[in-house]
Design a protein around this nucleic acid. Sequence first.
DNA 1: ATTTTCAATGCAAACGTTTGCGGGAATATT
DNA 2: AATATTCCCGCAAACGTTTGCATTGAAAAT
Lengths: 344, 344
Amino acid sequence: MKKKICTLKELALKLNLSISTVSRALNNHPDISNETKLKVVNLANKLNYTPNLFAQGFRKNKTNMIGVILPNVTHYFSATILKGILKQAEVKGYRVFITESNNNVKKQSEMLHTMMQFGVDGILMSISKKTKNIKDILDLLDKIPIVLFDKVSYKIPCTQIVVNEEEASFKAIEHLIHTGKKRIAIIKEDEFSFSSERRFEGYLRALKENAIDIDKNLIISCEDLSLEQGRRMTKLLLGLKNKPDAIFAITDTAAIGVIKTLKKFNIKIPEDIAVIGFSNSLHSTIIEPKLTTVDQPGEKIGKTAIEYLVKEIESSEAYVSSKTIEIKTTLIVRDSSLKTTSFI
Amino acid sequence: MKKKICTLKELALKLNLSISTVSRALNNHPDISNETKLKVVNLANKLNYTPNLFAQGFRKNKTNMIGVILPNVTHYFSATILKGILKQAEVKGYRVFITESNNNVKKQSEMLHTMMQFGVDGILMSISKKTKNIKDILDLLDKIPIVLFDKVSYKIPCTQIVVNEEEASFKAIEHLIHTGKKRIAIIKEDEFSFSSERRFEGYLRALKENAIDIDKNLIISCEDLSLEQGRRMTKLLLGLKNKPDAIFAITDTAAIGVIKTLKKFNIKIPEDIAVIGFSNSLHSTIIEPKLTTVDQPGEKIGKTAIEYLVKEIESSEAYVSSKTIEIKTTLIVRDSSLKTTSFI
DNA sequence: ATTTTCAATGCAAACGTTTGCGGGAATATT
DNA sequence: AATATTCCCGCAAACGTTTGCATTGAAAAT
């Protein structure tokens, strides 16, 4: 049960002023004398006055709320992005309303609807896998600013914050090549995953630019990239007549599955087979050997996303930007890949 | 920039009805004929009408928002609790507004204030370490329902959702004793940590009930429970003349530091020294040997917290409950401790 | 035929805040 | 001394919704 709270009216009554004067005094309006302002502010502090933000939002048609939709809060990478979002939103004076879609497309639509209904000023989202029907999102685009991050789609014309997936992947593969590896396998997702495809492009380009032939046997797609899949796919690769000398798993979790399996078969890492992951999850330093991986600066992604979104919210024109912003990653070389060039 | 949205007035105009009738029709008020209701609902759907929740909240003095304050979103355990909170809040028809205190007491106070200002219906919080000045919180208690979870304090008279820390710890130690371990070390936090102290109590009770003498050398307190501390404390324990045959680290992270160090010194786990952690974090199955640990059902904690909070919010009386609810944990035996009794 | 009853709808106030406009008093300008 | 300017402040409308009460018209009861 809520207790009632001090309002403008109460202040006005006690000070023998009009409500409008009190309101203006608290908002530091130039029309009000310093003397009055002081009196008002003092009493307001004393009575612990807090403006009813609902009345405010209602009046100004602005809630100072930003809605965030992401597939899963428990993913470490998502959590770091969230951290960046929370921090920067606070700086900018916005509150954040977070929801999880659990990769459920229907739920994602519902969340969007709820957000609108709640009158958020803008939406930040990472779209669910296999979001095919983007009609809901397109419909919303001219009503409210939306910024996509991490899991994005070029089919949606709005600002998108992503990681330089292709380049990161390219560099990871080049690192392997520079250490003398020539038969580099990739464990990727099916073609519906945006980031997987871009990482795959980087893989292809690195091989091409280094004049290494592509062996289709070394390219493995699977539906999800769990640890278990990493295990299975590794066994598959080890069954090949012509084995790989390095495995690039598009995700840390899968990479750990790879490492565990290689260890089980007593294969030396990185001498026999090197392993690289993607994400720099916390696991990557727990596993032994420590995993070489691509660090994605989650906090920065979150921060950037908020910055662009707020810019759109506070812009007076109803423009729709559709820039793509790339956040730079860095390759972190650890024990699962060779450090220096190895001449055979 | 926001576009304007269909309102009650617009519906009323198009249907040649009054605003009140439209409002009642949408709220399924018995006074309105089915015929009219149908017409209204149809048009509302067609025009994609969504009630302005700000106006609603404003009018009804209820925001259907719950504020959540926790130290750190990126901790896996916090994230699982969050998941439970989000899920159950949705079921109950509440929205959740999440903030991070980063274990910063000053920030925690600010967040509380912001939440009040924003008019949340209730607050869910996990308090920062070393929160000494609980005056802010006490002040709020009679204005708004608060439920504490995970990091709690008995000094605050409100509902608290915790894990059966003492019992869990007791069972973990008994498990070690049943496998023949007699010199069981504990790595705990200093006495300001609520949960650490309760786990320590469980440790003491288990030893006592099994008639094992307490060796003060085996009880180690440190300020934080990082992996690095786990490492350091293990070295310290290994320096003892009379070494332990098991180490209970009060946190998975520290336990992993323990394991890494033991492996470095070629000590057999669990034969020479067994290791137990607490949390069942994702790391516990990544590390080799896999860690025996106590599983804390985060989602359930979150769910329960919401349930109790909502109950208080929706209760008409301004009662202040101060029950403590214990959520049951389970010990998960993995490879870092012996499975069966070993008779020497 | 008159009154009563009842169902269906409309009127208008209220929630707390912001803001355009207008007015009165004091000060400055001529 | 008259006018113009400036400085403070109050009035009242508006935002979208809910809700107590009034109103209407028709059916039912007398």
